[in-house]
Amino acid sequence: MSEKEARKGSAHQKLLAFASLIVLVIGFSLASPNFFQVDNILSILQATSVNGVLAVGVTMVIITGGIDLSIGTMMTFCAVVSGMVLTWLGLPLILGVIAGMAAGAACGLVSGTLIAKAKIPPFIATLGMMLVLKGLSLILTGTKPIYFNNTDGYTDISQGSLIGDLLPVFPLPNGVLILFIVAAIVAWVLSRTVLGRYTFALGSNEEAVRLSGVNTDAWKMGIYALAGSICGIAGILISSRLNSAQPALGLGYELEAIAAVVIGGTSLSGGRGTVLGTLIGALIMSVLTNGLRILSVAPEWQTVVTGVIIIAAVYADQMRRRSAR
């Protein structure tokens, strides 16, 4: 396969995902007049924000050839930490946000250390972290939700609309704006910075990178920590939307995020992937959920359809690669 074909292949997959998204949107619009309405589109975007942020964060980890199964419960743990800082200690909003992201970074650093230094396979290390963090959230809160009633402006983080203030016809929720900003930053980091270059290089051939004199352990830990701090952002978004940190929530979010990454064409074996693809993947999932709900399809069936879509997306990718060979 020549370079040109390889490029074409990767663009092709993104195009395929994007085309599926368009087809879904057109299909649902034709099937129901309620689908293609500003309010509904906004609610789809709002529903994408949490999963999208998680998926963008874990995209980096997956490009290194790793996996992070703890992002769902880590998100909750971060929300709990901000809740403690804001509600229990009564500190200012910004400190709560910082504490949430810092908690995520710390968790990511622990996973990264286990993986890089203790050589525990990422699947196992983060599976353990997933359970540890779920338990810790419940312990810290005494299994009861923490409400943010006393923190002014906390719900605005996700549900307010800076854009709506300027442009009242299109009140894009801040949560979505944050998703786009996070995605843009991560996309920039991946394509323009040393960290991004090493992310792809680790997924491409970790040993060769180590033998180039690069401190691969440190970079890997850094990547997990960065992905963790992005989980912290997701934690703040979800708790802002619910106006509470729900300690029992979180399990299952990691798989939805990983599904979005995979639908977006990022390879689970590492070395390949894009943030734009992940965004499209996350949108496909929430368009599907929203559209099927509007068509009054039972939620059980929505789950079945999502599962089929994931398998179909990866199958399409496999077919493409086979024909390219």
Partner: peptide
């Protein structure tokens, strides 16, 4: 042990 095969010449020289 020497190359990230899927990456380009420039990235490998700079590794």
């Amino acid at each position: 042990f020497g190359l990230a095969l899927g990456m380009d010449v420039r990235a490998n020289i700079a590794m």
